[in-house]
């Protein structure tokens, strides 16, 4: 890839790294990443991947920007209140790096559209805030054989893991089924420290870049848990479940499921 002078300057700190170089930066420029949710996690993930020069970044979210988002959703601003979150984030990302093609999809992701939506992308990032979506994304990425970097946050705690198709456990190996509605509170009910999605989203973006570059070790078969109050990181090994209903030897889940009833809106 031939870099323009602006690109040489913009990506110089990457190009200098032995693990990246011009070849790695060219891989980043060719990569296509699909981000689910333009909220607490989607904003920093998309923002850093934009800064890194990822060629195409799709964002899907059905919501509009509200004042209560601004404590943590760093791609939005008072100027974009009322605007679809994906449009607000697209504006912010394009201002940061015009090299990046930002695809804004103002839709709710569902079992009927997810496979088509992620088809052309290399990596999927889950930044959703609810269990129906988390399971839908896990199942769809398994079926479509897409690497998935999933993150979750609540109060002062967050977690990240990377799920590779056909290699290691999936999210259902960890938790077979979503918890019953109401058992796990949402951020809306329980609160979240505004900076927490920055930490977790930053980790997710890092996982994505390592997948693109093919360098380092990703969180395959491992769940990384961060406690912001205690400032602790804990890595838990997650074994593949041979009787996993999705990726096990005799799967009972062979088509996508919408668990939406009983859960609050995304």
């Amino acid at each position: 890839m031939d870099f323009t002078d602006d690109q040489l300057m913009r990506y110089s700190r990457h190009i200098i790294l032995p693990e990246v170089g011009g070849k790695g930066q060219a891989k980043i420029a060719k990569a296509k990443v699909f981000i689910i949710g333009a909220g607490g996690l989607g904003c920093p993930v998309g923002y850093y991947l934009t800064a890194a020069g990822v060629g195409t970044i799709a964002l899907i979210d059905n919501d509009t920007v509200e004042m209560s988002n601004l404590q943590r959703q760093i791609a939005h601003s008072v100027q974009t209140i009322g605007m679809p979150k994906v449009e607000s984030a697209k504006k912010t990302f394009e201002a940061l790096n015009p090299d990046v093609n930002v695809v804004a999809i103002q839709k709710r992701i569902s079992k009927d559209n997810i496979i088509d939506l992620i088809r052309d992308y290399d990596i999927v990032v889950d930044g959703s805030d609810n269990f129906p979506t988390r399971y839908l994304v896990n199942d769809a990425c398994f079926m479509a054989r897409k690497p998935l970097v999933t993150g979750a946050i609540l109060r002062f705690e967050g977690q990240v893991t990377t799920i590779l198709p056909g290699d290691g456990p999936c999210y259902r190996c960890l938790f077979e089924e979503p918890p019953p509605p109401g058992l796990v509170p949402s951020c809306q009910e329980a609160g979240v420290l505004g900076v927490l999605p920055g930490v977790i989203g930053g980790l997710q973006a890092t996982e994505v870049l390592k997948l693109i570059l093919g360098k380092g070790d990703v969180l395959k078969g491992e769940l990384l848990m961060y406690n912001a109050l205690k400032t602790t990181f804990r890595k838990v090994r997650v074994p593949k479940n041979p009787s996993c209903p999705l990726c096990g030897a005799k799967p009972s889940i062979t088509e996508l499921i919408d668990y939406n009833e009983g859960y609050c809106a995304m």
């Binding site: 040489l8 300057m9 110089s12 700190r13 190009i15 200098i16 011009g22």
Partner: peptide, 14 residues
């Protein structure tokens, strides 16, 4: 710097 090394490194890579 750092463009001196950036240019040199890209040349070596090729």
């Amino acid at each position: 710097c750092p463009y001196t090394f950036v240019k040199a490194k890209l040349a070596i890579e090729s």
